[in-house]
């Protein structure tokens, strides 16, 4: 290898590593899922308002509850794969949150992305089975397909049909601030990290 080639190789290695460094957000994010989290924590995007319908068929908008933080997770009730684990962990989270937070500053929403099957009746059954109280923790759906898709896109949730007639989807807990900004995404298997974070905020 000539000197010229040595220099060129060195330059290629430096450029190559720099590109990989940038492309992985400083070697932090190798998957789209991690990338999304890094991105969201940096930009804290403003979510477009959305209408939820709960198990009592009552509708309410994300933006209407002032001064309240919202923790959201996504499921569909027929799911036998990952959703039961998500909901169990969501319940752990719900139980670990100091009750004074829940009364005034915080609401939990389990959002179904399968509004066709998940009617309010279906949501009620699900709510009972996982032990949500229907007030501070509600099971909701977004009936309007366009709004649903927009909300999923903004949260970076990709839902794809699987072989068994259900869906595959990425799972996490999303923290939305009172102004409707998505400020954090947490692993669904670490409910304690959400509680720690909330204690810092409140």
């Amino acid at each position: 290898m000539s000197k010229k080639e040595g220099k060129l190789s060195f330059i290629i290695v430096v450029i190559g590593l720099t590109i990989l460094f940038i492309a992985t957000d400083s070697f932090q994010a190798f998957t789209a899922e991690q990338a999304r989290r890094v991105q969201i924590e940096k930009t804290q995007p403003q979510l477009k308002d959305v209408t939820f319908e709960d198990s009592e068929s009552e509708t309410f908008r994300l933006g209407e509850s002032e001064d309240v933080y919202t923790i959201v997770t996504f499921i569909y009730t027929r799911c036998g794969d990952i959703c039961p684990a998500i909901s169990m962990n969501f319940r752990d989270l719900y139980e670990d949150i100091p009750s004074e937070f829940l009364d005034e500053k915080l609401q939990l929403l389990t959002v179904s992305f399968d509004p066709e099957y998940d009617t309010p009746d279906q949501l009620t059954m699900y709510q009972q089975s996982i032990g949500a109280d229907g007030e501070t923790w509600r099971i909701v759906r977004i009936e309007d397909q366009q709004e649903l898709q927009q909300f999923l896109n903004q949260a970076g949730v990709i839902v794809i049909p699987n072989e068994e007639g259900g869906f595959a989807h990425n799972a996490a807990f999303y923290l939305i601030d009172p102004n409707g900004r998505l400020i954090n995404i947490f692993d669904y298997d670490q409910p304690e990290s959400v509680v720690n974070h909330l204690e810092k905020i409140f």
Binding site: M1, S2, K4, E5, L8, S9, I12, V13, I15, G16, L17, I19, L20, A23, T24, A29, F30, T31, A32, Q34, A35
Partner: peptide
């Protein structure tokens, strides 16, 4: 030719580009 006589600069480009495109986030992207 004069810059790639040993083949090493060329193969380095190929290696870095392959790593880039098999990063899961690039596959998704």
């Amino acid at each position: 030719k004069s810059y790639n006589h040993s083949g090493i600069p060329g193969i380095l480009i190929a290696i870095f580009t392959s790593i880039y495109w098999i990063l899961p986030r690039m596959v998704d992207g």
